[in-house]
Simulated scan of single mutants.
Amino acid sequence: MRGDWFALIAAPLFFWILGVNTFHDAAHFSLHKNWKVNRFVPYLFPILTSPLAWYHQHNIGHHSYTNVSHRDPELAHFTFWKREHKSVKWRPAHEKQRSPWFLLFWWTVAVEIAFATMNDLWMIKDKVYNECVPMKALSRRRLLCHCLGRVIGAGFLFVWPFFFFDTWTRVIIFAVVPYVIVSNLFMVNTQINHLTTDTAHAGDEDWFKHQVVTAQDFGVKSKFCFFLSGGLNLQVTHHLFPTVNHCHLHKLQPIVALLCDKYSVKYKTYSGYFDAIRAHHDHVVRMSYNDDEH
Rank of each mutant, 00 (worst) to 15 (best):
R2F: 14
F6G: 09
A7I: 10
I9T: 13
I9P: 10
L13I: 07
F15A: 13
N21S: 15
N21Q: 13
T22I: 11
A26C: 15
A27N: 11
F29W: 15
L31I: 13
K36R: 15
V37A: 15
R39I: 08
P42K: 08
Y43M: 10
I47F: 08
T49K: 03
T49I: 10
L52Y: 08
Q57E: 12
Q57S: 13
H58Q: 11
N59D: 09
G61A: 08
G61M: 07
H62K: 13
N67F: 01
H70W: 11
R71V: 02
R71S: 09
E74H: 12
E74M: 11
A76P: 00
A76H: 03
K82T: 08
K82R: 08
R83H: 10
H85W: 05
V88A: 11
K89Q: 15
R91Y: 12
P92V: 14
A93F: 14
E95P: 00
P100M: 03
W106I: 05
E112I: 04
E112C: 03
I113R: 00
A116S: 14
A116R: 09
D120K: 00
W122V: 07
M123Y: 03
I124C: 03
K127E: 12
V128K: 11
Y129W: 05
Y129P: 00
N130G: 02
N130L: 12
C132L: 01
K136L: 01
S139L: 04
C145N: 09
H146I: 00
H146D: 05
H146P: 00
L148E: 00
V151Q: 06
I152Y: 13
L157N: 05
F158R: 01
W160V: 05
F162Y: 13
F162E: 07
F163G: 05
D166Y: 05
W168M: 13
W168E: 08
R170H: 12
V171Q: 12
I172Y: 09
F174S: 03
V176L: 15
V177Y: 04
Y179A: 01
V180W: 11
I181D: 02
N184M: 12
L185N: 02
N189V: 09
T190M: 13
T190A: 12
Q191F: 14
I192L: 11
L195E: 06
G203P: 03
D204C: 06
D206H: 00
D206P: 00
W207A: 05
H210V: 01
H210A: 01
Q211A: 08
Q211W: 08
Q211S: 08
V212D: 01
V213H: 03
Q216F: 04
D217G: 04
S222K: 12
K223I: 07
K223S: 14
F227N: 02
G230W: 02
N233T: 10
V236E: 01
T237C: 14
H239G: 11
N245P: 04
L249C: 05
P254C: 13
I255L: 14
V256M: 09
A257V: 04
L259V: 08
C260L: 02
K262V: 03
S264R: 07
S264Y: 04
K266H: 10
K266S: 11
Y267A: 00
Y270R: 06
S271G: 07
G272I: 04
A276G: 07
A276F: 05
H280W: 04
H281L: 04
H281V: 04
D282A: 14
H283P: 07
V285G: 03
N290P: 03
D291C: 06
D291G: 07
D292Q: 10
